[in-house]
Amino acid sequence: MMRKTLTVLALGLTLSALGTGAVLAQSSAAKATVDAAKAAGVVGEQADGYLGIVAGGDDALRASVAEINIGRAAAYKEIAARTGVTPEAAGQATAKQLYSRLAPGYYWKPLDGGWMKK
Rank of each mutant, 00 (worst) to 15 (best):
K117R: 15
V54Q: 12
M1H: 11
S27C: 05
A32L: 03
A73K: 07
Q46F: 08
G41E: 07
D112S: 14
W115C: 06
W108C: 06
A40M: 07
A89G: 06
M116P: 08
V34H: 01
K117W: 08
G91K: 00
G114Y: 11
A37I: 07
Q97W: 06
L9D: 05
T14Y: 11
V65K: 03
A81W: 08
V65W: 06
A32N: 01
K109D: 13
G44V: 04
K4G: 04
V85G: 07
L13H: 03
A81I: 05
D35N: 07
R62T: 14
E67M: 09
S28G: 00
T20H: 00
R3L: 11
A55I: 14
A22R: 00
K117D: 13
R72S: 11
A29S: 10
G91W: 00
V43T: 08
A22K: 00
A63H: 14
A63V: 14
R82P: 07
G71S: 12
A36C: 01
N69Q: 05
V43F: 06
A80K: 07
E78M: 06
A17T: 03
A40H: 06
K77M: 06
A25K: 00
R3F: 07
L102V: 03
M116L: 15
G113S: 12
T5G: 10
L61R: 03
I79Y: 07
S28Q: 03
E67H: 11
P87W: 06
Y99N: 12
G113I: 02
A90L: 09
K77E: 14
K109I: 13
D35M: 02
V85T: 13
E78G: 09
T83M: 12
A73S: 09
A25S: 04
N69K: 02
A66G: 11
A95M: 04
A60C: 12
I68G: 04
L24P: 00
L51P: 05
K117L: 15
T5H: 10
A60S: 15
V42E: 09
A30F: 03
K77H: 11
I70E: 15
V8D: 10
T94E: 04
A37K: 03
L15A: 02
A74P: 05
A10S: 10
D48P: 06
A32T: 02
S64N: 09
Y106N: 11
T20P: 00
P110Q: 08
G21V: 00
K118P: 12
S16N: 11
L18V: 00
T83E: 13
L13A: 09
K117C: 09
D112P: 06
W108E: 05
V8F: 02
L51W: 04
